[in-house]
């Protein structure tokens, strides 16, 4: 499902300086697998997710996702790929505080040709399945932490992506909400999604549903 071959990513800094975020990384993730990328912050795991999501391009090497090389896609194709294949869950949820819960969920689908009522309907169904039934019209900034988390997950799922990428999804959650998240992960895995979680939360390292833990350190796989 996901295959990286000799991928390096160097970010240029001002002047001649540069920082190597990933160095010669090769890895392969099968369809339906739940993989945890383990590493401290700055180890390169976020960059790895960004490469898989075609948010950025590798300096060298190839990234093949869902049978498609995304390393050199022009923006139009990269964006469409991201919208159709990838669901992203961010550390700080990255909701738009001034939009309602349901409007946050429909956000990825606004430029598509689906009708407004169709995407609202889909968002509503997903939010309901995640246990958010009330306060759908409330502004995101007025929601509780748990509600915000569910809205963020619903937004990742609204396009029915084959792959879910989560970047430190539990870093700003308390113990109970973290366990809720694990429950939702189980459901996602059961529905056949390929899931990659970048985290340094030890809870995930020996979780039953996790198929594999890949350790990353200083831009290299350990």
């Amino acid at each position: 499902m996901i295959r990286l071959t000799n991928v390096s990513k160097i970010y240029p800094l001002s002047g001649a300086d540069s920082v190597t975020a990933l160095e010669n990384v090769s890895l392969s993730i099968r369809e339906g697998e739940l993989v945890v990328l383990k590493g401290i912050s700055g180890s390169g795991k976020s960059t790895l997710l960004a490469l898989i999501a075609a948010m950025t391009k590798p300096t060298s090497g190839d990234v093949v996702v869902a049978g498609r090389s995304v390393a050199k896609l022009p923006d139009r194709f990269a964006s469409d790929f991201r919208r159709n294949t990838i669901g992203m869950i961010f550390q700080k949820f990255n909701l738009l505080g001034d939009l309602s819960a349901i409007d946050n969920v429909t956000l990825p689908l606004i430029p598509t040709h689906e009708s407004a009522s169709d995407i609202k309907e889909r968002a509503y169904r997903i939010l309901k399945s995640l246990g958010v039934k009330k306060r759908l019209g409330s502004l995101a900034k007025h929601l509780s932490g748990g509600e915000q988390q569910r809205v963020a997950i619903a937004r990742a799922l609204v396009g029915d992506p084959a792959i879910i990428l989560a970047d430190e999804p539990t870093a700003s959650l308390d113990r109970k909400l973290t366990l809720d998240f694990v429950e939702m992960l189980k459901t996602m895995k059961q529905s056949g999604k390929t899931i990659v979680i970048a985290t340094h939360d030890p809870l995930f390292f020996d979780l039953g549903i996790v198929d594999r833990v890949i350790e990353i350190d200083g831009g290299r796989l350990a």
Binding site: P12, T59, S60, K72
Partner: peptide, 10 residues
């Protein structure tokens, strides 16, 4: 050159 991956190309 779409084939290159340099910062300049980006």
């Amino acid at each position: 050159d779409i084939g290159r991956t340099t910062p300049e190309q980006y």
